[in-house]
């Protein structure tokens, strides 16, 4: 195998010592009450985060996550050369307004719930290419802002099916750069848009599982590895339904995922928290990756982790017009470096 950054059409290898120098997470109260709650940097007591609209609350959360990430990286906004951020709202307003307050060069991203790893992969490649010294990447979602945009008003009494998902309220951010501390980013696999014809916007797990399977299989093939190369593989927000589908799909393709595979959307909430199939949204993968997985990679609980963030690229207009849901998944591989 050569050592060029381009491994294949989809997979990139980072040869510089690119690290996640610091990461931060802010969430709402329901997420804070979940099993990973104590690993979050900031948990707001109410979904409004003391603001007067949910949109402002979401911005505040992204701002808090960015602050925490910068603080842990022992850097200030002055040191950051580019910010890569995205969210679920029209014209990615959360990211744009957060960057307004930070006085940073911004590249706005939209990859729906796959934005977290899209941002991390691009951040690492910009550092690898020498265009930036330190890159800041982050994303956010809010249950109420997402519900209002994609579905119904939050207080509307419609009944949701048991396979629906719950948009995570929160934000995650990280600082990427060449350094000596923190987990190393080794590879990234960029996903292709996969559409298997699912049209039900409540059934995101079924829609997104094939996209995740495609990216994971491509990653294994390109690097000539098997699932046990990693001691943790997570998908962003497939929920219980998509989790089961992905596992069987990869099994039928010859990859046994079971012992190492988990889903961020299922890790955030307890079984009894009434979130149907599990969490979803940009924040799902970001919140878990930038708290629990970072901590695990620093403490030695995990040695090698593959995070595959999954996104459903539909809009309220597209599904009302009867279009199926195109999906995407981006994977980033990280490993612990012994000091």
């Amino acid at each position: 195998m050569n050592n060029l950054p381009r491994v294949s059409r989809q997979t990139w290898r980072f040869s510089k010592d690119i690290r996640i120098l610091g990461s931060g997470v802010a969430t709402g109260p329901l997420e804070g009450d979940g099993p990973l709650g104590k690993e979050f940097d900031c948990v707001f007591e109410d979904n409004y985060a003391s603001e007067d609209s949910w949109e402002k609350a979401e911005r505040k959360m992204l701002g808090k996550a960015v602050d925490a990430a910068l603080q842990k990286a022992r850097l200030t906004g002055e040191d950051i050369d580019v910010m890569l951020a995205g969210d679920l709202l029209n014209q990615i307003i959360t990211s744009n307004y957060t960057a307004r307050g930070l006085d940073l060069p911004l590249l706005g991203l939209f990859g729906a719930c796959s934005t977290s790893m899209e941002g991390l992969a691009i951040a690492a490649s910009l550092v690898e290419g020498g265009f930036v010294r330190y890159a800041l990447t982050g994303c956010s979602s809010h249950n109420s802002t997402a519900e209002r945009q994609f579905r119904y008003p939050t207080e509307y009494g419609g009944q949701k099916p048991p396979y629906a998902q719950w948009t995570v309220t929160g934000a995650g951010a990280s600082v990427v750069g060449v350094g000596t501390a923190g987990p190393r980013i080794t590879h990234a696999t960029i996903g292709k848009v996969t559409d298997m014809g699912i049209k039900d916007p409540f059934d995101m797990g079924t829609a997104m599982a094939p996209a995740a399977a495609d990216t994971i299989m491509k990653h294994f093939q390109d690097l000539n590895i098997t699932p046990d190369y990693y001691d943790l593989i997570v998908t962003g927000d497939l929920g219980k339904v998509g989790y089961a589908i992905l596992k069987d799909m990869l099994k039928d393709a010859g990859y046994e995922m079971s012992p190492h595979y988990r889903d961020c959307g299922m890790m955030i909430y307890r079984q009894d928290q009434d979130v149907f199939s599990g969490g979803s949204g940009c924040a799902s993968s970001a919140v878990v990756t930038y708290s629990h997985i970072m901590n695990g990679l620093c403490s030695g609980k995990y040695q090698r982790v593959l995070v595959v963030a999954t996104g459903a690229l539909f809009s309220p207009v597209s599904f009302q017009q009867g279009e199926s849901i195109p999906c995407i998944a981006h994977g980033v591989a990280m490993e612990r470096v012994l000091a």
Partner: peptide
């Protein structure tokens, strides 16, 4: 393939909890 696009929606149905 078992998981090809044609039969996917039907095949995946069994994974969904029934209403």
């Amino acid at each position: 393939w078992k998981w090809s696009k044609e039969g996917y929606a039907k095949h995946a149905e069994q994974y969904k909890p029934k209403k």
